[in-house]
Design a protein around this nucleic acid. Structure first.
Lengths: 341, 341
DNA sequence: ATGAAAGCGCTAACAT
DNA sequence: ATGTTAGCGCTTTCAT
């Protein structure tokens, strides 16, 4: 049987209340008494029982707020699944989870959404932050009043108090580059289709991809990088135009959204599937294309884990298992091909 | 606030004890009273609070036994990590975990090890079962006396009461075949190096691999399948011999152990890395070879998750969240190349 | 068959 | 500054 607060109390010759105060740095216990209690606790290797603690506090009315810009973005459905599973696991500990799902990347909208959550008495926040100074300042403010913050899926610069939970975008791009090297046997001319150069993750992917291709595949020529703003229409038009001018293209790397349109353009142009295609993440369309052999591989980032870990990280903080700080919790980078679904 | 047993008691006009008895099918509550309680419970959508339940029962002295044939097998270190994490998570619920690690695949040894665990009062078992009738019978016996069983990493035939937690070996082989198709561009002659045809998982991998190559790569010729018994010496010798007779080999697929030896033979023979290599799982050696470019890709099976999920599955059973039955919990099949570690 | 009460380990409100 | 006590939701023992 594990050592309890009661045993420590007996050994120290004090009451359980005093032990509780001493061990939790609550006010009102004399220095020497506190020291003695802590010493005994260490000697016995005391570990507080989280189950009992939770039952007693009923989670202290903790509520974790989740704020994501996920509307219209299929990718996030798995993130939500992870959040949901974590939510159920911590429900019996008395923890609530409130989700706000937004569309687009308007700073003002995100700011008011944050305020709304705070009004709803959240005690922790998981957010896909816009990489903007005003957001940064707002988060710093929340952190100041004791609200731990997790940056979910996308990181924000200059917030060294948040824990980032998401993928390493640079490495993700490198992995795409590595696969590209394999499927092309290191020869040919390729096109990169990105989302937007203003989005940090997209930038990093392109960078990582380019680095690997340049370092390892001297016989591959990156012909061009085009941007779609994550829009399928634009992807369709721009890729189509490009193909007409460069009919002998070897491969395409889709670093972000707009791939559905881009792939459509490729299919119309290349009916014998000569052009190799590497993409990122999984949506229903993506999976269909991989299974049918149109897309050769997709580089994934464990969205379920991202949702799950984000919530659990905040839970661990609130329940005193581990504190949220400036660390990066990178999810693994997976490779999906036709056969490993 | 969630609905509690107390509320139900008040509404039903009985005591909390009676509600507890009724809801948990304990003896000593009149039929009509029981029905009424259950009806009210359903109407309110009552969900027992697991935290409170755990505190009250202190885990009922549950102890999960783990029996794995992992000695001398690097692969399992990640499985153990997963077990350890799960063990810590359930410790505060009053659950113990006892691990027995064995070497080799002797049926009698495994039987006595099982008995030893039972003598140690385990109330659940996670095991890497030898695919043998006597083991099967023993497990059926345990199941009979109420010990839930999880087959961990390797499945056993004819035990429809166990939950299997591990990878889909056939799909794993298919994935290797798919990657092989990519890296060879569907042309060449390849060698399969397996462990033992007596081991179900190895058989399935070879099958899956062969199927994909035959169906999708008519220009690839599988020259031969050799067995190493998971032994590096044998791998070194046999692969070396083979290469001397077949100097123009294109690629090798290592479906199981013995790869370190086999790779060594290839390196001695092929110093410009013309021969493509696909392997399975990750060990320190494997990672080194992938990072240095000797091995092009390795097909993985989430060993950490296997350990973690096995324990959590048994925990869920013992705590009444979900019952162990004949289902298969397949872990995902990952692909590792130089860049996605 | 059912109720009453104690207790799991901890916290927090109330005394002193 | 410290002790006492009630209580979190549930199980279990002991009465009745």
């Amino acid at each position: 049987m594990a050592v309890t607060i009661k045993q420590i109390a007996t050994l120290a010759g004090v009451s359980r209340g005093t032990v509780d105060r001493a061990l939790n740095n609550r006010a009102g216990v004399k220095g020497e008494v506190k020291e003695k209690i802590i010493r005994i606790s260490n000697e016995l290797g005391y570990k507080p029982n989280l189950v009992a603690k939770s039952l007693a506090t009923r989670g202290n009315n903790h509520k974790i707020g989740v704020l994501v810009n996920a509307k219209g973005n299929d990718f996030f459905s798995e993130v939500f699944r992870g959040i949901e599973v974590a939510k159920n696991e911590i429900a019996d500990f008395g923890f609530k989870v409130q989700i706000e799902n937004m569309q687009g990347f308007d700073v003002d909208e995100q700011l008011t959404a944050i305020d709304r959550l705070v009004k709803n008495d959240i005690t922790a926040l998981a957010i896909t932050p816009i990489n903007d100074t005003r957001i940064k300042n707002k988060l710093a403010e929340l952190n100041e009043i004791g609200i731990p913050i997790v940056a979910l899926n996308t990181d924000i610069e200059g917030c060294d108090f948040t824990t980032y939970v998401g993928c390493d975008y640079y490495k993700s791009g490198q992995t795409a580059g590595g696969i590209m090297g394999l499927v092309t046997k290191g020869v040919g001319s390729i096109l990169i289709v990105s989302g937007s150069n203003r989005i940090l993750g997209h930038q990093l992917r392109v960078k990582g991809f380019t680095q690997v291709i340049q370092d390892e595949c001297p016989n591959i020529n990156i012909v061009s990088i085009i941007e779609t703003n994550d829009n399928n229409e634009i992807g369709y038009i721009k890729v189509g135009q490009f193909l007409r001018k460069n009919p002998d293209l070897t491969a395409v790397y889709f670093a972000a959204g707009g791939a559905v349109g881009g792939v459509k353009a490729i299919m119309e142009h290349d009916n014998i599937h000569k052009i190799k295609i590497i993409a990122n993440d999984l949506t229903d369309d993506r999976i269909k294309h991989i299974k049918s052999g149109i897309i050769d591989a997709s580089i994934c980032q464990q969205p379920f884990q991202q949702g799950y870990i984000a919530i659990k990280t905040l839970f661990d903080h609130l329940i005193d298992i581990a504190k949220v700080d400036g660390q990066k919790k990178f999810t693994q980078i997976g490779i999906k091909i036709k056969y490993n679904f």
